[in-house]
């Protein structure tokens, strides 16, 4: 295991005590892309900050590539690359200088640093903007520079906090590609996100985290399988009184693995049976069916099943 977290807790003391991380265990295998998926305030950033030695845990241990990161922060940083939630590029230096000096900080000689900078600028398609300053870059480009800089010292693990926050769809896809390429290089990636598509697309394994606890952890496929359904029908009804009754009826149908009341209707988890949709519609019709949403079962479904809440709430 390249990243091993045991019994991690972080309590922020202040006017109001906040338990940001509440007993987290993580094991990340070398070479995988590992995702922490959770809503705002779940404790993702805090977990990553502890792993990257920026925050001291209240309890628990972190080992990165075998080194105790809490006891030896300075040394363990050699194995860690970090891209935080916000832009931390050195405003006084150009893009290539940002990477070059980063290499110097990590003990490269000047010649090595120069060679590594050239190579990274090339790898991340930054060749045209080498002399630009960070303030002149678009969000997507700045993100790419940050990733290039973070891996410049050849860390074993790269931590990305909300890498696609604020990126347009095109930059997001470019970022995904860059992250996949890192895996080819043998760099383990741990990222946080609250986009389930991102966790699904990009990650080999995903831990769903809420209120500082890990609820489940598995491959995206296995997590989606765990709900026992391929389709989710969201029924929105006018007649709210009879929602529980309808849910009970639908739950008995062949092909329905679960039917549960929601605020204004019923959520039906279905594993493909022919003609089920027609039956569901027929049953719901008398209650004033306003609207119907059909989606593939996703990590979002898993999250809702676990917490009763939407990821976005």
């Amino acid at each position: 295991m390249i990243v091993e977290v045991r019994g991690l807790r972080k309590v922020y003391s202040g006017k109001q005590e906040v338990t940001a991380v509440d007993g987290i265990d993580l094991s990340v295998k070398p070479g995988e892309i590992y995702g922490l998926l959770g809503p705002n305030g779940a404790g993702k950033t805090t977990t990553i900050s502890i792993c990257t030695t920026r925050v001291i845990p209240t309890a628990g241990t972190v080992r990165i590539a075998g080194v105790d990161a809490v006891a030896n922060p300075a040394i363990s940083r050699r194995a860690i690359g970090v891209v935080p939630q916000y832009n931390t590029l050195d405003r006084a230096c150009t893009i290539s200088e940002n990477i070059y000096f980063h290499c110097l900080f990590f003990g490269f000689s000047r010649a090595e640093a120069k060679a590594r900078t050239t190579q990274l600028l090339d790898q991340f398609h930054l060749g045209e903007r080498t002399k630009a300053y960070p303030s002149q870059l678009s969000g997507g480009l700045a993100q790419r520079v940050q990733i290039a800089r973070a891996i410049a010292h050849r860390p074993k693990v790269l931590f990305l906090d909300e890498p696609s926050a604020g990126l347009d769809p095109q930059s997001r896809i470019a970022m995904w590609e860059a992250v996949r390429a890192l895996r080819e290089e043998g760099i383990t990636v741990v990222l946080t996100t609250h986009y389930m598509e991102e966790a699904d697309e990009l990650c080999d394994r995903v831990a769903i985290i809420d209120h500082g606890k890990i609820l489940v952890e598995d491959t995206p496929a296995a997590l989606k399988n765990s709900v026992g359904a391929q389709k989710v029908y969201e029924l929105h009804l006018r007649d709210r009184e009879s929602i529980p009754a309808l849910a009970a009826t639908l739950a008995g149908y062949n092909g329905v693995s679960k039917a549960e009341p929601t605020g204004d209707g019923v959520r039906v988890l279905a594993h493909g049976a022919d003609g089920l949709l027609a039956e569901v519609l027929a049953a719901a019709g008398p209650y004033g069916l306003r609207d119907l949403n059909i989606t593939e079962a996703s990590l979002e479904t898993v999250f809702i099943q676990l917490t009763g809440r939407d990821l976005r709430e």
Binding site: A74, D90, F105, F106
Partner: peptide, 15 residues
């Protein structure tokens, strides 16, 4: 504002 310091702190050097 800039939080550049956050990157400097990631150097392999005690804070």
């Amino acid at each position: 504002v800039t939080r550049e310091i956050d990157d400097r702190v990631m150097c392999p050097l005690p804070v």
